[in-house]
Simulated scan of single mutants.
Amino acid sequence: MDWSNFKFIDLFAGIGGIRLAFESVGGHCVFSSEWDEAACKTYKANFDETPAGDITKISSENIPDFDILLAGFPCQPFSIIGDKEGFLHETQGTLFFEIERILMDKKPPAFMLENVRNLLAHDKGRTFKIIYEHLNNLGYHVHYKVLNALDFGVPQKRERIIIVGFKEDVPFHFPAPLSEGEKLSLSDILETDVDSRYYVRKEIRESRLRRIKDVDYPKPYISHENIAGSITPHAYSSALRAGASANYILINDERRPTERELLRLQGFPDDFKIVVSYSQLRHQTGNSVAVPVIKAVAKEMIAALKSTE
């Protein structure tokens, strides 16, 4: 197997952040799946391919052979049915079951899954325990770690669990954080000439400035409104969220981030095409991955696989 030229599939593909990362280390996507229409529109504009729809309706036979399965899968609670139903039933009806089914049928050498940090704590740890055991039972050596986008060069605090598995017991290590000098700052990613439509109304601005925790915080900053309503400025963005309110993060308490800035906060390149509305793109970037984190993981995975060639 030549690991400088490998095939992967992109499940729950979103707008293709994981795909970008694995293409950067020599991968070729042979199949993608995503059910959200607006996300598919962005994906098609950037990869010239419309993902197949709902993965629950696609049989493994209709998926071409591949070397690595990639999925940023939604976290759903598992119904713990108990031993009488048998082990497989634990995951049925969840989207993780689709990953398990495809791994079982196709037996690729490796996979990488991405999920929210809370997956580890979900249902007092039982959800993750089931996922881990099921991947293990499929014959994979499983590694997992919570990685923060801030450590990999983008000014966004975004902690995500990365789960990596290999059929062979390869010498895999998660990537080390970048040095301070290698990271992008807010100034590096902010646009200078921003249209007035991104600026918030005077009342919103005044209301935010009244509640700000550190009035002398150096600009540029991104402030975040928490559930209690207090406003905290940081030299980085809090995690982009798909369902957040429009003014949940503001730059210098003056304006919303532009579409390009939202993509840059996730480490997407500037030639990434924007073909949907602002609210759709905000939703898409909130659901996406921080590309540099996945790139760093992809590099380590391929290095580990190459070492056993």
Rank of each mutant, 00 (worst) to 15 (best):
170 V>M: 02
133 E>L: 15
180 E>C: 10
207 S>L: 08
192 T>H: 14
208 R>L: 13
163 I>D: 00
154 V>N: 03
149 A>R: 03
192 T>F: 12
184 L>T: 09
149 A>K: 05
193 D>W: 05
150 L>D: 02
184 L>N: 15
195 D>Y: 07
167 K>A: 11
153 G>N: 01
182 E>A: 12
183 K>P: 08
200 V>G: 02
213 K>M: 12
186 L>N: 01
142 V>F: 07
178 L>W: 06
127 T>E: 08
181 G>M: 10
138 L>D: 02
189 I>G: 00
209 L>K: 12
211 R>A: 13
143 H>P: 12
208 R>N: 10
144 Y>R: 15
156 Q>Y: 03
184 L>P: 04
210 R>K: 15
210 R>F: 11
159 E>G: 04
144 Y>E: 10
206 E>T: 09
157 K>Y: 12
159 E>H: 06
215 V>W: 13
198 Y>T: 10
176 A>S: 13
181 G>I: 10
178 L>M: 11
199 Y>V: 00
130 I>M: 06
211 R>V: 12
130 I>D: 03
137 N>K: 12
214 D>I: 15
144 Y>I: 14
199 Y>G: 00
189 I>S: 01
147 L>Y: 10
168 E>M: 10
191 E>R: 00
192 T>R: 13
185 S>Y: 07
140 Y>M: 02
180 E>D: 14
160 R>Q: 07
138 L>C: 03
188 D>C: 05
152 F>P: 00
198 Y>F: 12
182 E>L: 07
173 H>K: 13
187 S>H: 08
159 E>C: 05
201 R>D: 14
137 N>S: 14
142 V>M: 08
205 R>V: 03
187 S>G: 14
147 L>V: 07
205 R>Q: 11
211 R>F: 11
212 I>H: 09
203 E>L: 09
211 R>L: 12
174 F>W: 02
148 N>E: 08
140 Y>S: 02
145 K>Q: 15
215 V>C: 10
177 P>S: 04
149 A>H: 06
214 D>R: 15
176 A>I: 07
207 S>F: 07
168 E>H: 10
169 D>S: 09
141 H>M: 06
130 I>Q: 06
194 V>M: 07
164 V>G: 02
145 K>A: 15
166 F>W: 06
149 A>F: 09
136 N>D: 13
138 L>H: 01
204 I>N: 05
197 R>K: 14
152 F>S: 02
168 E>F: 06
127 T>K: 08
195 D>T: 12
128 F>V: 04
203 E>N: 13
137 N>R: 11
153 G>M: 00
155 P>V: 01
160 R>I: 10
139 G>M: 03
181 G>S: 15
214 D>P: 01
177 P>M: 02
170 V>H: 04
195 D>M: 11
